[in-house]
Design a binder for these strands. Structure first.
Length: 425
RNA sequence: GGAGAGGUGGCUGAGUGGUUGAAAGCGCUCCCCUGCUAAGGGAGUAUAGGGUUAACCCCUAUCGAGGGUUCGAAUCCCUCCCUCUCCGCCA
């Protein structure tokens, strides 16, 4: 959510900035609603103030056993007027809130203009793209060769875009999870948390998935509005909701491994093969909360932490800065990490690291106490995957495949996998 | 699932219809005193929204959430959520 004061005082400027992200801010409608609100709110409040005074007077009269019936009659009338007005005000405020909750974050200045991912800017690359002296297989071919990826069973058990991992492939995923968690906890300074995978609508509003993107989520049946978490970002960030953090606790750095559930509405026909895009996948997520001035640095740091996994696994990758058209709803600036996928002869997203500034914190009321001025201020949140498991597994097996069909295990992972390769049995 | 208790400011915790936005304590900030690994005295210290100012300041809302009763609700009524205790069931 954007700052209401900013929206009111710099409406045009905000409109121009949001336009970069493809959001049309209806300035006329907005200022019309705002003018109505201003009038209605001050009218309602002054009537309320009048009533409060009157009620106090009635109280005093009653205490001294004097007649208050005249004043009470006035008050009854006032109450009725207030009721009508505040109903109108309520509707108006809800309308305005709906608009504001549907407005994306303002992109940072250094975010390049662009319409889609083709306009993203490559920031840096790591590792040499492997050259095979044989025809490399894709991850699904490798998966069936080793009987490690079973899409048919996934479809049978549940449906399309669900997968089953078996034997060494299942073990590889488990090793990767432990490896990533250990690196982030022991080397990068994160605290491990285990959180619910089912979240309520308030949490989803806090991080920005609701109200706008409900169709991307799996909603549970029942009286409560529960959803399957699309990313650990939701439960982990919401640990801070309605909290006031002491400055000595900052920065907060949390890491969590969770499954993620996404309906993938609108992605029909995209990445239909294999485990690139699933309704359920595992992810290790990094979340930071810092004071306002520190968020730029925190994004750089968090991105490097996510990269550290790819580096250790020796998977070639590149870092791209997302352009305005590819930037997520809540993000002010995002770096994507893209791992090399030999079968597609291109880099594919494996992590997305974003600076949300105060956008999420304002929705969540996640704050900290600034000792330098004694004020309670909004936190800034930053998060990123470190990393998405199915895509890491995919990139690993494709990049490390050998001519004989075996898959080498990167050195860094061997303590976890307890073997130096995956061989056919 | 059954029975009971409860949800108040950063924290603990008073408060059962009328200057209670809320006592007291803790914590925190500032000042004074004192002086050494301590203590004492004083002042200040919720959040959100709105109006207004150079600054001050004023108004409104908020005592789990949402409704209701009333001139007036933290206090009464209804619904829901959550926590705790006991019982039952269970990984």
């Amino acid at each position: 959510m954007l700052d209401l004061k900013l929206l009111r005082n710099s409406t045009k400027e905000v409109g121009a900035l949001l336009k970069r992200k493809g959001y049309e801010f209806d300035l006329v409608n907005w200022s019309d609603l705002e003018n109505q609100r201003k009038i209605l709110q001050s009218e309602t409040e002054s009537l309320q103030s009048e009533l409060n005074t009157l009620s106090k007077e009635i109280g005093e009269l009653k205490r001294s056993n004097k007649d208050s019936s005249g004043k009470e009659k006035n008050a009854t009338e006032l109450t009725a007027r207030i009721k009508t007005k505040s109903k109108d005000l309520d509707i108006l405020l809800k309308t305005i809130n709906q608009i504001v909750m549907g407005m994306p974050n303002i992109p940072d200045e250094e975010v390049p203009d662009g319409k889609d991912e083709s306009d993203n800017i490559e920031v840096r690359t790591f590792g040499a793209v492997p050259k095979f002296n044989f025809t490399p297989l894709d991850h699904l071919e490798l998966g069936s060769l080793h009987k490690g990826i079973d899409m048919e069973s996934g479809a049978k058990i549940t449906g399309s875009r669900f997968s089953v991992l078996k034997s060494d492939f299942a073990k590889l995923q488990r090793s990767l999870i432990s490896f990533m968690m250990d690196v982030h906890v022991n080397e990068n300074g994160y605290k491990e948390v285990y959180v619910p995978f089912i979240v309520n609508s308030q949490s989803l509003e806090g991080t920005g998935q609701l109200p706008k993107f409900e169709e991307d989520l799996f909603k549970l049946e029942g009286d409560q509005s529960y959803y399957l978490a699309p990313t650990a970002e939701v439960p982990v960030s919401n640990l801070l909701r309605d909290e006031i953090i002491e400055s000595k606790q900052l920065p907060i750095k949390l890491v969590s491994h969770t499954p993620c559930f996404r309906s993938e509405a609108g992605s029909y026909g995209k990445d239909t093969k294999g485990i690139m895009r699933l309704h359920q996948f595992e992810k290790v997520e990094l979340v930071q909360a810092v004071e306002e001035g520190d968020s730029d640095e925190a994004l750089e740091e968090l991105t490097i932490h996510a990269e550290s996994i790819l580096k250790k696994l020796e998977i070639p990758y590149r870092v791209v800065l997302l352009c305005t058209g590819d930037l997520g709803f809540a993000s002010a600036k995002t770096y994507d990490l893209e791992a090399w996928v030999p079968s597609q002869n291109t880099y594919r997203e494996i992590s997305s690291c974003s600076n949300f500034r105060s956008f999420q914190a304002r929705r969540m009321m996640a704050r900290w106490k600034n000792p330098s001025n004694g004020k309670t201020e909004l936190l800034n949140t930053i998060n990123g995957s470190g990393l998405a498991l199915s895509r890491t597994l995919l990139a690993l097996v494709e990049n490390f495949q050998q001519k004989d069909g075996s898959i080498a295990i990167p050195d860094a992972l061997r303590d976890y996998f307890k073997a130096d390769s995956i061989k056919q049995n």
